[in-house]
Amino acid sequence: MKQPFPFSAIVGQDDMKTAMILTAIDPSIGGVLVFGDRGTGKSTAVRALAALLPPIHAVRGCPVNSAKPDDCPDWAEGVGTATHDIPTPVVDLPLGASEDRVTGALDIEKALTRGEKAFQPGLLAAANRGYLYIDEVNLLEDHIVDLLLDVAQSGENVVEREGLSIRHAARFVLVGSGNPEEGELRPQLLDRFGLSVDVASPTDIEARIDVIKRRDAYETDHSAFMLRWQAEDAALRDRIVTARTALTKLKTDDTVLRDIAELCLKLGSDGLRGELVLLRAARAFAAFRDDTALTRKHIRAVAPLALRHRLRRDPLDDAGSGARVTRTVEDILGA
């Protein structure tokens, strides 16, 4: 298979790229929702992200990619004790995937042919410690959404069916993309995404020409194109790794916390999740920028990403919630 389009070669879409880099630095931010028209590079960016992430250590043969042999679930068969490096898992959850496929279920084949009661792990197991990507997330069927909500909240997948009683870790970063014209997302699911981004096609002809030229070069002159951009991707990967360590040393002032609380209060975002995500995202952003202390500048940059989808929607407001967040940020933090 062809290598995915390099992340650094994506033209524009800075919000989307920033949001994805932030979750790569701090996975506890909790995922990205990308809403926008077709052909704005949503799926391209997710596939590219996979190539950008540093590899993880995992026990060989473990179905949930555990880091230590002790963490491997007891139902897993053929698990060794040796660990090896694997690429960060990026698992696709296709529309129309059945509940069994997502959570895992009784292995019917084994049950019928060998008469054994065995567990067949699903997509949630495969996505542990990695990313779960749902294209067209707004078209996902309701019962699958309910399942995801629960697992994304608890970080654990519990299967109680057909005489099986299985639980395993399922911590993953949820990445969803969709086209808002085709359907809305339930507020509960919206809330599970840490950051949200609206993408649109570039309105500038020059940018569009750039998009076409790069994509064309990727298709017709693949190896030269990859060679050129893989260097930039490697540099970006190094920055992400550096930022992960810098994150622990970052200073956070109480005044900044006060700013964040005030901002969320003024916007009336539901619950405390908004504050937490905004704080984490701002810290990751500061670490990515090599700054040593968290300041208003960082909050201002990531506030729309972290808060836009947490406001009560006014169906008649055409401007969208992004503009409302920006306005409030300017009111409270000063332009």
């Binding site: 569009r208 994509r215 298709e219």
Partner: peptide
Amino acid sequence: VAQIVTLAATLGIHDPRGPLLTLR
């Protein structure tokens, strides 16, 4: 290339696949 992209924009085609496939 520039002509094709401009034309796609004039026709209201925002998906870059349009001009890309035209080029191909």
